[in-house]
């Protein structure tokens, strides 16, 4: 996230958040269907996070809790965090939550660390043991961050297994194989 050009960092801020306008704003339309050329105070809409954050700093909007952190998701996470399909809710669940927590609801932080703690164990077990084919269903539930973790574990384990199995250490140059054939 430190990198300015980090594509995941950019995509996180593209997530939509529901906002309520605190001020009337002239010259903008949030909805094509409205006739008026301004936004009334108290109107609700969804804005991408990067815009909502800027407006929030200027006290123009207040940010509401988005759907992926609502009460229903919370209950599901409390019931069994490992089985919740976070990817379809928000692929950047943790990063988005971290950015959002100070702006709308501080308790999101607790939810995130609780969910991660449980789901981390699940990723750990699956990553080092399961064959790739069996894991594809499990992979569908993971957020981006968890997928990276899973892939990191899988690839280093696969590299180790490949090394241990060995095989020929010296690769035979293709020209050497060809040379013998005419003689036979």
């Amino acid at each position: 996230m430190a990198n300015y050009y980090d594509i995941d960092g950019i995509l996180v801020e593209e997530e939509f958040v529901p906002v309520v306008f605190q001020k009337a704003i002239n010259g903008v339309k949030i909805d094509e269907s409205t006739e008026k050329g301004y936004v009334e105070q108290g109107s609700k809409t969804e804005l991408p996070f990067w815009l909502a954050q800027e407006l929030h700093m200027r006290q123009a909007v207040s940010i509401r809790v988005p759907a992926c952190f609502n009460q229903k998701t919370r209950l599901e996470i409390q019931a069994d965090a490992a089985c919740v399909d976070l990817r379809s809710r928000c692929p950047y669940f943790y990063e988005f939550g971290c950015k959002l927590a100070p702006l709308c609801d501080k308790s999101i932080g607790l939810l995130l660390s609780y969910a991660f703690r449980i789901r981390y164990k699940e990723v750990l077990h699956k990553a080092h043991t399961t064959a790739f084919a069996a894991a594809s269903k499990f992979l569908m539930l993971l957020t981006k961050e968890e997928t990276y973790m899973y892939e990191a574990a899988q690839s280093s384990m696969a590299a180790f297994k490949k090394w241990r199995m060995g095989g020929p250490r010296l690769q035979r140059a293709s020209i050497l194989g060809r040379k013998r054939k005419p003689a036979e």
Partner: peptide, 14 residues
């Protein structure tokens, strides 16, 4: 190494 590094970072962040 790769897995634990990422996991620790996430734990630290949260």
């Amino acid at each position: 190494r790769a897995f634990a590094g990422r996991a620790l970072q996430a734990f630290y962040k949260h």
